[in-house]
Simulated scan of single mutants.
Amino acid sequence: MISNHLNLVEQRRGAAFDLSEQIAQYLAANGKIVQLESPPINPDPGKRSTKIDPETILKRRKPPITRAEREALRKLAEAL
């Protein structure tokens, strides 16, 4: 089946022509194009803050009691 749509190159040809005209005008006005090195693909993550707000500290769940503690509690309960 043949598509009625222009291919991607033809669709963008007008915008590319306009851009090339703008570049030519910039260079004619003594503009310089500098090609810099590209940024890293995976940049380093941002620095973490060292400030700790006491209002927002997570309230951790207490660890469950151990088997020995459970047995000691049972003995205390039986003694009562």
Rank of each mutant, 00 (worst) to 15 (best):
M1R: 08
M1D: 06
I2Y: 12
S3N: 06
S3V: 02
S3Y: 03
N4M: 10
L6T: 03
N7H: 08
L8T: 15
L8Q: 15
V9M: 07
E10H: 02
E10C: 00
E10M: 00
E10V: 00
R12L: 07
R12F: 09
R12C: 04
R13H: 12
G14E: 11
A16V: 09
F17W: 07
D18V: 10
L19P: 03
L19M: 14
I23V: 15
I23C: 13
Y26D: 03
L27F: 06
L27K: 06
A28C: 04
A29M: 07
N30R: 12
G31T: 02
G31H: 02
I33T: 12
V34C: 09
E37S: 14
S38Y: 10
S38V: 11
S38W: 07
S38I: 10
P39W: 07
P39A: 10
P39H: 08
P40R: 13
P40G: 06
P40C: 09
I41E: 07
N42L: 09
P43E: 09
P43C: 06
P43T: 05
D44L: 15
P45V: 13
P45M: 12
G46F: 15
K47M: 03
S49K: 11
T50M: 12
T50G: 14
I52Y: 04
I52C: 03
D53Q: 01
D53K: 02
P54Y: 05
P54L: 04
E55V: 02
E55W: 05
E55P: 01
I57G: 03
I57V: 15
L58N: 00
L58H: 00
K59W: 00
R61F: 05
R61N: 06
K62T: 05
T66L: 01
R67S: 05
R67K: 11
A68W: 05
E69Q: 08
E69H: 01
R70P: 00
L73M: 13
L73H: 08
L73R: 13
R74S: 08
R74P: 05
K75C: 01
L76C: 08
L76K: 13
A77C: 02
E78L: 05
